[in-house]
């Protein structure tokens, strides 16, 4: 077996040492720094992106909160405004209603006065007319000519009875 030929051992050990040291140099000086750097850089980049995303998310949350606050404020303000306007409208309406009611009441009172007067006038007219009609009827039926005083008294008595 060539593996157990000791004359080849010095050469194998020597070249093993030489090439192993050479490879160690390649690994320590070239492979590990370069590959390590790229992996580290990638990890850093990913971390930076995550950090930025976190910051942006915080900003977004902040903006959403501000928006919601503004929305709530606006809504509250609008409610106040609406309530104020409603109160104003009611006040105006109440005032108008009061005015109209007062006018109408005045007109009603006025009308009642006029009606009462008209009624009095009508009653007065009716008495004169009844007296004349009574005198005519008496004259025609009984051929009498009663004096006005008597007729008036009789009509007044008759009206009192009917009332």
């Amino acid at each position: 077996m060539p593996q157990f030929d000791p004359t080849t051992f010095p050469s194998q050990i020597f070249w093993l040492a030489v090439s192993f040291i050479a490879l160690y140099w390649v690994v320590a000086r070239l492979a590990i720094p370069r590959v390590g750097e790229v992996i580290e850089q990638r990890a850093r980049l990913v971390q930076e992106d995550i950090d930025r995303a976190t910051t942006l998310k915080a900003e977004t949350d902040h903006a959403i909160a501000a928006y919601e606050q503004a929305m709530a404020d606006a809504r509250a303000q609008a409610q106040d405004h609406i309530r104020g306007i409603a109160l104003e409208i009611r006040a105006v309406a109440d005032k108008k209603t009061a005015e109209v009611t007062a006018t109408v009441n005045a007109q009603i009172t006025d009308a009642e006065v006029r009606i009462a007067k008209a009624k009095t006038d009508a009653l007065a007219g009716m008495r004169t007319m009844a007296a004349e009609t009574a005198r005519d009827v008496v004259g025609k039926l009984a051929a009498l000519a009663p004096d006005a005083g008597t007729v008036d008294a009789a009509v007044a008595a008759a009206l009192k009875e009917t009332r």
Binding site: T7, T8, P10, S11, Q12, F14, W15, L16, V18, S19, F20, A22, L23, V26, V27, L30, A31
Partner: peptide
């Protein structure tokens, strides 16, 4: 007095280093 000839074994060790490099 030591024989440290460059052999086929040493050649392939060199190849291994070169391939890694």
């Amino acid at each position: 007095g030591l024989d440290i000839s460059y052999t086929n074994s040493a050649l392939f060790m060199t190849f291994a280093v070169l391939a890694s490099f």
